[in-house]
Amino acid sequence: MSTISLKRNLSRSRLFKENFFRVLVSLSIFFALGFILFVVFILFLQSRGALNLDLFRNFPSARPANAGIQSAIFGSIWVVGIAALVAVPIGIVAAIFLEEFINPNNRIAKIIDLNVRNLAGVPAVVFGMVGLAFIARGSLGWGFTVGTAALVLAMMILPVVIIVSRESIRAVPSSLRDGSLALGATQWQTVWRTVMPSALPSIATGAILSVSRAMGESAPLLLLGALAFVTYNPESLDSDYTILPLIIFRYASDAKEEFHAIAAATSLVLMAILFLMNLTAILIRDRSQRKA
């Protein structure tokens, strides 16, 4: 017979703390998960059957029976797609330059770094003001068009793309750079053939997350003519446009009850798009982690 016991033997206060934190953690998880399910559930109730193919087929209309969101879906895709095409390559190249080709102790490098970080914290509506003054009006005078909106969103996500790209590049072990340079590769070949292939999955993840932020953003475009009743899809950079977040606002604030259901259905569409983008980002990250 053994004289010792391996049974649980905690003082009352230790036991209390143990259980208290267990409950706290469970509650936090429940809130995080429960909240999103709650939102989706409420939206479903409110949409009252408005989530159907007609929603995608029809254009905005003053009559609820004919009202849809096709021009807003295409507007969002155009604006955010072009913003991504502008901001992501520029952001990645800027990040490569800042991480690989400039001495971090250089004074100019420090000023640029500080600026980029501050720019990432500037409220979105301020970018809208800048766009209004200098792109829509002012010397460029592009007006309230897809081009203006895309450029403003590109400015808004550029600092975020730079920051996530820099972090991804910095995470590449320097032993890979040493190995490549020791074989007589130039610095550019080293970046292109060893650093970028390793950094690309996490750059892609970060870029998708910042683009999905642009997809849900409404404040800057509110100032740039997106809150319009546009009954046709964009065809070029100087087309009129509207976007999903603002058409939700439009329908939700209409006096007619029937429009509120359409607003709820549109919200579900927007959430589904964002969810798919984030899922893509997570899948890319997981795949690259498994490979490494």
């Binding site: 032993s175 074989l183 007589g184």
Partner: peptide, 16 residues
Amino acid sequence: VRRRIGMVFQKPNPFP
């Protein structure tokens, strides 16, 4: 210079 004078490092660093 580095093409003619190669280097092997402390920790093996094969490329992925």
